[in-house]
């Protein structure tokens, strides 16, 4: 049986393994399941990056109509990812720092790290410097919803804060209380890093 990659309507190239029915089954054999989880993690993160999705919930596997249908379901082979399997994958992703539970103290919903917070910090700093906004005070809103769309558009607040805190530790950003909440000032810092 030959499997081939498939391009979704949204222009995402699904891997060939997505057309294999066993891919959707939670394998009892731990070693086999580790391989399956690894591929799913990669698939989920790629798709999230492709569609700029930040959240994945176990409920997304239940009824059709969510943003994740193209990945979590495969109508061509009549398979979908059971919620129990998805829950297992999410757990594994969190344990490998590929995602974090958001909100905390529950396991049904995760914030995906298709970029790690450290990478986000770099992206943030690069964006600030490339748009010549170093040393200016920016509100969080101005970062998340900039006049000119950027990679940071729509970034969740949690992720943004973590990125900023990373920058603060390296003295490249400074959190300042402003009148309507908080603001941040990016500093040039030591680019050497």
């Amino acid at each position: 049986m030959s499997l081939s990659p498939h391009t979704t309507p949204s222009g995402f190239l699904l891997p060939s393994i997505h057309a294999a029915p066993p891919f959707f089954t939670l394998q009892p054999k731990a070693e086999t399941q580790a391989l399956v989880t690894e591929q799913w993690t990669r698939l989920i993160l790629s798709y999230a990056r492709h569609r700029r999705l930040f959240y994945l919930r176990v409920e997304d596997a239940e009824p059709p109509g969510s943003d994740w249908d193209e990945v979590l379901r495969n109508d061509r082979i009549n398979r979908r990812l059971p919620p129990s399997h998805l829950s297992y994958i999410l757990d594994d992703m969190v344990s490998k720092n590929k995602a974090m539970y958001e909100p905390v103290k529950q396991t049904r919903s995760v914030l995906l790290f298709w970029r790690l917070p450290e990478e986000w910090a770099e992206v943030l700093h690069d964006w600030a410097s490339s748009t010549a906004q170093l040393n200016t005070i920016l509100t969080f809103f101005e970062i998340v919803e900039p006049p000119v769309p950027s990679q940071l558009s729509g970034i969740p607040d949690t992720l943004l804060r973590r990125a900023i805190s990373i920058l603060t530790k390296t003295n490249r950003a400074q959190v300042i209380a402003v009148s309507d909440g908080e603001g941040v000032r990016f500093l040039a810092g030591n680019v050497s890093k």
């Binding site: 294999a20 029915p21 066993p22 959707f24 089954t25 939670l26 394998q27 009892p28 054999k29 070693e31 086999t32 399956v36 059709p64 379901r73 109508d75 009549n78 398979r79 979908r80 990812l81 059971p82």
Partner: peptide, 15 residues
């Protein structure tokens, strides 16, 4: 299966 030579497709979650 326990030796990892084969894997299963339970198929119970058909659409």
């Amino acid at each position: 299966e326990d030796e990892g030579e084969i894997c299963r497709d339970e198929g119970g979650a058909g659409i």
